[in-house]
Design a protein around this nucleic acid. Structure first.
Lengths: 138, 138
DNA sequence: CCTTGACTTGGAGTGCACTCCAAGTTTTAG
DNA sequence: CTAAAACTTGGAGTGCACTCCAAGTCAAGG
């Protein structure tokens, strides 16, 4: 039962500025990502201007997630290379994502710890402030 | 009832290498932090070598928490300046910490969101992998 | 057709947070 | 006292992830 490609071949085709607005990545960053190999070369008009398809956008959004969770450009490159290499790399990709996910979980735990300690510090300062006020106006 | 200062005036006095080992900050970074004004000038031996007191260490550990939760050096500087300016700046310091804490909570929420999405992606890949294996060995 | 704004490229420049270096001085173990 | 290890300084260098630039080409509205 191979799925047919689509009913409408009308691909969205967004300009770099539009994609920039959607993803909050600057147009410069979008070009940089492409040059760096994070994105496969996106389609062009006859005049060589970029036109992004919805698949490009979805991939960008996934990259953004990786970036926001602290993955380096280099690691994203590795992942992108595997993706470009096709279906035989899926288990490698899973391995990378699992690894990243584990690190992320650990990172979140550490942040929560630090958040608690910070709030303690704030409480401590608040007590100090209280004491001060009593001393000034006894 | 003012507490007396201490019974033993024997301050710990750690070398830069010892503090480096304890804090996991390189000796270079410790000097950099001092130059940058994150740490007040620490005590020196007659020969001008740094000797850190336990108060210095406690402050460093607090800075580390700020750093690990994503505070910039510049913001840490601001905080350090307030601290150095004395007790009248406590409410300002509270304001900074509250702000930072709020941002941190938000950041943690975003990371958790992303972690969920990542795990979805992993599951998706695992299903793909399953499908592949069935196709190869039907 | 023409103008205005959007887009192209390669490459240089930026900001942050360190990190390294050279040349000299101090501390410490024996 | 001596040799080796640890420390000092000012300043230069690094790596990352963009960000900006110049000079030119292309697209879309009137």
């Amino acid at each position: 039962m191979g799925m047919e490609k689509a009913l409408t071949q009308q691909e969205p085709s967004l300009t770099i500025t539009q994609v920039s607005q959607i993803t909050r990545l600057s147009a410069d960053t979008l070009r940089y990502y492409e040059k760096a190999g994070l994105i496969e070369r996106v389609g062009r008009t006859t005049g060589n201007q970029r036109r992004y398809a919805s698949a490009d956008l979805a991939w960008l959004e996934f990259l953004l997630r990786l970036r926001e969770t602290g993955m380096s450009i280099d690691d994203m490159k590795r992942f992108a290379r595997l993706r470009a290499a096709g279906d035989t790399t899926i288990s490698d990709r899973i391995a990378i994502l699992r690894d990243h996910s584990d690190g992320l979980a650990e990172h979140i735990r550490a942040l929560q710890q630090n958040a608690l300690a910070l709030d303690d510090k704030i409480n401590h300062y608040e007590q100090l402030l209280n004491t001060q006020q009593k001393e000034v106006r006894p």
